[in-house]
Design a protein around this nucleic acid. Structure first.
Length: 677
DNA sequence: TTAACTGGAAAA
DNA sequence: TTTCCAGTTAAC
């Protein structure tokens, strides 16, 4: 066939009514000599469509044969367009029956996608019913050519490290020293670690990473945010010196980000620290995967397919027989599950050490107090708490944790502070104007004659909380004392021993060099009043994290209801017991981790159609659909017993592939949604 | 983005 | 029945 455009350009241009086409023609296809050895490249193309989520074969021109190795970025023509892709393998023959299109261009010889990460992106995509191209976007940073050309490192080798120092760091968390010995031998060991209050946890993470490093293995340590990352980085430098690690920061610019990535992917740095996106870092000779505070929702990736860093690490550990360390002051039900099934062992401080480190008490009204004095609970800062603050200030800074402002725009009973709920749908009540009756946020029902279901009181109050308001109140109560705040956009990383009162919202607590003289937890009832599935677990996690910042021997006071199981877990400092209790409750309610949940969200018609076509695994329950948070969208929840989790993921993956290939309107699938708000 | 394919209509 | 063309589909 001749190309009509090429053979008769003048004629075409002379046709009336046709715009003259530019003189430059598409060059006639130049026949390429394909590579003598392994002329086929399997390429993962960067295409978002679920049914195209597999490698496609391309011909390797002889001229590219040397550089088109697994892991390199290439440009290929796919369905007529030029798309980005990664070579994942070379082969002698192709399964494909048609002609193979040659690779257009090898972008660079840098193999940025290692075989381990290729495999990982596959299992993560499967697990979350997403596409590899989405996961690859999370795993490999954009290229920066200048950096790639200039970057060069000597491969760092572990210095001599003192075994006693490494195991000694763990002596308070038995059998921590044995765990570290395992790392030093290079054995795959797995632990769930519940840190004692006032533990210098970055130092322990550093010791674990260093032990793995000393065994010639790489380690990956993930923390929730940049503030924690700074602390762990400092601890690593302290222990092994500079030049052995990289800290992969979410806020690094493109060049810094790519440079740090290359230091890891080239194997020059094998202690890798980072936040959630570093879960995919191609650490060489991977020995240890560690994660701090796995309950923090910052570990949950907000971009599709929404993987959780903990699950990515667990999948990685399975594939590569690496060691695992899940640590925190609190314990998630997921971590508890790993202990329960024997997959991981517990590293726990002995009870007497905990008692020595911290004394937690609760102040606030018991039911008996309330019977005597119904206003007792409305005192925001009870006498016991303010006395503690006063006496502690003499010896050091005092941390006051207060719920985020805006956290409780809804109303509560004026007397007992039980959150006010709609009697029709249990939604939270709010005020929309100064003269309107309280109305339900969810269903809009107005409640003119509201009566508290708990105590029968008729008055409502808007709970006044928030760090600014708290700081103001404390400033009045303690004239002459410095009051700092750390929250939202202005988070303090550290404070000094002379900082006075430090008011912070959960997650924004600054660390104090020698710990806080006292920690006060305000408005604990608010966190417990939330409707979320994980409200209790999350509340306990936040309190433990704040309380853990106390100096050894310090006092913690929580203002709240002493009968609350969550506060009792705090008083006993028993994250493991609380996790066991939560797990039992979840089990009976068929909630994770005993069950595996997924949500499917979309336009009502699309969702209905999707659910009708969905081939659910036997034993699956489909709940809903109900209106979702997004305007006009609805959401269904699908639930299966945990053992059927992989079947559920596979079925949802099939659903997405089918819908994509039939060009049906998209529905969003989320496996293990972090919350069901 | 585009080559291959499909089906329906015009031409023979 | 063949040819042509526009719209659709798959995608190496």
């Amino acid at each position: 066939m001749t190309d009509p455009g090429a053979s008769q350009p003048e004629q075409q241009d002379l046709l009336p009514g046709l715009a003259p086409r530019p003189a430059s023609r598409r060059p006639a296809p130049v026949p390429v000599t394909t590579a003598a050895v392994d002329p086929v490249a399997r390429v993962l193309v960067d295409v978002a469509l679920a049914h195209l989520d597999r490698p496609f074969d391309y011909a390797v021109p002889e001229s590219m044969s040397e550089v088109a190795v697994p892991g390199v970025r290439v440009k290929v023509r796919f369905a007529g367009q030029e798309v980005q892709g990664y070579v994942v393998a070379r082969a002698a023959v192709s399964e494909h029956t048609g002609r193979l299109t040659p690779i257009r261009r090898v972008v660079s010889g840098e193999p940025v996608l290692s075989p381990e990460i290729t495999a990982l992106t596959h299992v993560v995509a499967q697990r979350y019913a997403g596409t590899r191209s989405d996961v690859l976007r999370l795993a490999v940073p954009p290229r920066h050519a200048t950096v790639e050309r200039a970057a060069a490192w000597e491969r760092a080798e572990p210095p001599q490290l003192d075994r006693a120092t490494l195991t000694g760091a763990w002596e308070h968390h038995p059998p921590g020293p044995a765990f570290v010995e395992g790392l030093l031998r290079g054995d795959p060991v797995r632990a769930v670690w519940s840190a004692a209050p006032a533990t210098d946890w970055p130092a322990l993470l550093a010791a674990a990473a260093a032990a793995s490093y000393a065994a010639g293995r790489g380690s990956l340590v993930l923390v929730p945010d940049g503030k924690d990352l700074d602390r762990v980085e400092a601890a690593v430098v302290d222990l092994v010196g500079a030049g052995h690690h990289v800290a992969l920061r979410a806020d690094s610019g493109p060049s810094r980000r790519y440079r740090d990535f290359l230091a890891v992917s080239r194997g020059a740095r094998r202690i890798v620290l980072g936040t959630r996106s570093a879960a995919f870092a191609p650490v060489h000779d991977l020995g240890l995967l560690a994660l701090w505070d796995d309950g923090d929702d910052l570990h949950s990736e907000p971009r599709a397919p929404y993987p959780h860093a903990r699950e990515v690490l667990l999948l990685r550990a399975e594939a590569q027989s690496a060691s695992v360390l899940l640590g925190g002051f609190a314990r998630t039900v997921e971590a508890e599950y790993l202990v329960r099934t024997g997959w991981a062992r517990e590293l726990l401080p002995p009870r007497d050490l905990v008692r020595q480190r911290v004394t937690v008490s609760i102040t606030g009204a018991s039911d008996r107090d309330l019977a005597r004095d119904p206003t007792a609970r409305s005192a925001r800062l009870p006498r016991q708490a303010s006395e503690l603050i006063r006496s502690a200030l003499a010896t050091g800074p005092v941390l006051v944790q207060t719920p985020r402002s805006g956290y409780a725009a809804s109303l509560a009973c004026e007397r007992c502070r039980t959150p006010a709920r709609c009697a029709t749908c249990s939604g939270p009540l709010r005020l929309t104007g100064p003269s309107t009756p309280p109305a339900c946020r969810w269903c809009g029902t107005e409640w003119l004659g509201w009566v508290c279901a708990e105590c029968g009181h008729r008055g409502l109050r808007a709970p006044v909380v928030g760090d600014a308001r708290t700081a103001e109140e404390l400033g009045r109560s303690f004239p002459g004392v410095r009051v700092l705040t750390s929250s939202g956009a202005s988070v303090l990383a550290t404070v000094t021993d002379r900082s006075g009162i430090v008011v912070a919202t959960p997650g924004a607590e600054p660390s104090a060099p020698d710990g806080y003289a006292a920690v006060v937890l305000l408005d604990t009832w608010l966190a417990l009043g939330r409707t979320d599935l994980r409200a209790q677990e999350e509340a306990v996690r936040r309190w433990l994290n704040a309380a853990a910042l106390v100096r050894p021997g310090g006092d913690v006071v929580a203002v709240g209801d002493p009968a609350s199981p969550a506060l009792q877990a705090l008083v006993r400092w028993d994250p493991a017991g609380f996790a066991r209790r939560e797990m039992a409750e979840r089990q009976s309610a068929h909630l994770p981790p005993a069950s595996r949940l997924a949500t499917v969200t979309g336009e009502p018609d699309a969702l209905e159609q999707a659910l009708a076509a969905f081939e659910a695994p036997a034993g699956a329950e489909v709940l809903g659909p109900v209106p979702s948070g997004d305007e006009g969208e609805v959401r269904a929840v699908i639930r299966v017993p945990r053992a059927l989790g992989p079947d559920l993921s596979a079925a949802l993956g099939d659903l997405q592939r089918t819908r994509s290939s039939r060009k049906l309107p998209a529905v969003r699938v989320q496996v293990d949604p972090p919350s069901l708000g």
